[in-house]
């Protein structure tokens, strides 16, 4: 804007110090005391307006947003910490449950083993008893058979002896003597 005036005014070749506003300014415009009051007045107005905007609207708003964010972040951190704690607790509970389950399983296995052992013992005892009974029966049967066999042998021996005696010396066979002889011979058997 200054350059436009520069070209138009330069043609006239007139620099009027009284109307420096519209022409080339001689020296520094910053040092013109005529303009100080104007600038200071508008500066004060500007600063007051900016101050009011900042103090009443902008700064409280930004401060509240920042503190809300800080709160939100610290809340999130807290809840994250709580969740982490929960996760640790859950892991502990899981491990405990696992250990309990293992212990219980071990117990059940031990109980089952004991039960089986007991049943087995009972069965073995019963079997032993049966075996013993059977053995006793068999012994009795063997004893009877043996007795029967001895009697049969005695009878056969008596009969054989009687028949032999009757053949050798008929009429000489005395039943009583034969029986006694056989009995005396069989004593060793």
């Amino acid at each position: 804007m200054a350059s436009e005036e520069t070209t138009s005014e330069a043609g006239n070749g007139a620099v009027d110090a009284g109307h420096a506003v519209a022409e080339h300014y001689e020296g520094m415009p910053q040092l013109n005391p005529d303009w100080f009051a104007n600038q200071i007045f508008w500066l004060v107005v500007t600063l007051v307006v900016i101050y009011l905007i900042l103090a009443k609207v902008a700064l409280p708003r930004i401060a509240s947003v920042l503190s809300e964010r800080a709160n939100a972040i610290s809340n999130d951190l807290e809840s994250a910490e709580a969740l982490k704690q929960k996760a640790v607790e859950a892991e502990e509970a899981y491990n405990k449950a696992l250990a309990d389950a293992r212990a219980e399983a071990g117990q059940i296995v031990a109980e089952a083993k004991a039960d089986i052992q007991k049943d087995l013992n009972v069965a073995i005892e019963k079997a032993d008893a049966e075996i013993a009974a059977k053995a006793a029966e068999s012994e009795v049967a063997i004893a009877e058979i043996r007795k029967g066999a001895v009697a049969a042998v005695e009878k056969v021996a008596k009969d054989t002896a009687g028949a032999i005696i009757n053949k050798i010396m008929p009429g000489a066979g005395d039943a009583k003597a034969i029986t006694a002889a056989v009995k005396s011979q069989m004593k060793g058997v």
Binding site: T6, M28, N38, Q39
Partner: peptide, 9 residues
């Protein structure tokens, strides 16, 4: 005219 830009109008 480097100072003309600072003139108050």
């Amino acid at each position: 005219h480097p100072m003309d830009q600072f003139v108050i109008k």
